[in-house]
């Protein structure tokens, strides 16, 4: 019969400690790999998501970017009732027409009945002081037929009055 020794389980304890240590190292290294580096930079989220959102391309350049080439139309609009209407609101974003100062595609020229009535058709929900007409009535009053470009026959869209 062997005498009971306190060192009898040393080997097992060493093995368990080694295993736990190994698991810990794996966890730490896995965390380094799977958790994004910028995590927790500003809060409980990936800090790099902020500059990524900021880096998205600006599509609408604004009226000033249109003015660089189309000053005549810009000035005409500036003096008329459509001063508040953005160029890109009726046309398309400048990004679809010019990129880095080079024209990439012709600009869309809309002059349709639908575009005009989209804002100026009389609706109960529209503010009373906003310029609006009943399109059928307006055409009858002026003895005109409904065509797609009927509005621009009398009204210049850049300065409608």
């Amino acid at each position: 019969m062997e005498p009971a020794s306190s060192l009898k389980h040393t080997k097992h304890i060493f093995r368990v400690s080694f295993l736990l240590g190994f698991v810990l190292i794996v966890m730490i290294l896995s965390r380094g790999l799977f958790v994004p580096k910028s995590w927790g930079q500003y809060g409980w989220y990936r800090g790099d998501a902020v500059p990524e959102h900021r880096a998205k391309p600006v599509v609408h350049g604004g009226d000033q970017s249109c003015r660089e080439c189309h000053e005549d139309q810009y000035d005409l609009r500036e003096e008329g009732a459509h001063v508040g209407v953005r160029c890109e609101g009726c046309h398309e974003p400048v990004g679809s027409h010019v990129i880095n100062g080079e024209m990439t595609a012709p600009m869309f020229i809309p002059a349709s009945f639908e575009l005009c009535t989209g804002c100026h058709r009389r609706l109960a929900a529209r503010p009373d002081d906003f310029s609006q007409v009943n399109p059928q009535q307006h055409l009858e009053d002026n003895e005109m037929d409904l065509t797609d470009t009927v509005c621009t026959e009398c009204h210049d869209p850049h300065s409608p009055f």
């Binding site: 994004p36 580096k37 910028s38 790099d48 902020v50 500059p51 990524e52 900021r54 880096a55």
Partner: peptide
């Protein structure tokens, strides 16, 4: 590199 945008632009 964790991210192409790391640092800069701010």
């Amino acid at each position: 590199p964790d991210d192409a945008y790391a640092a800069g632009t701010t």
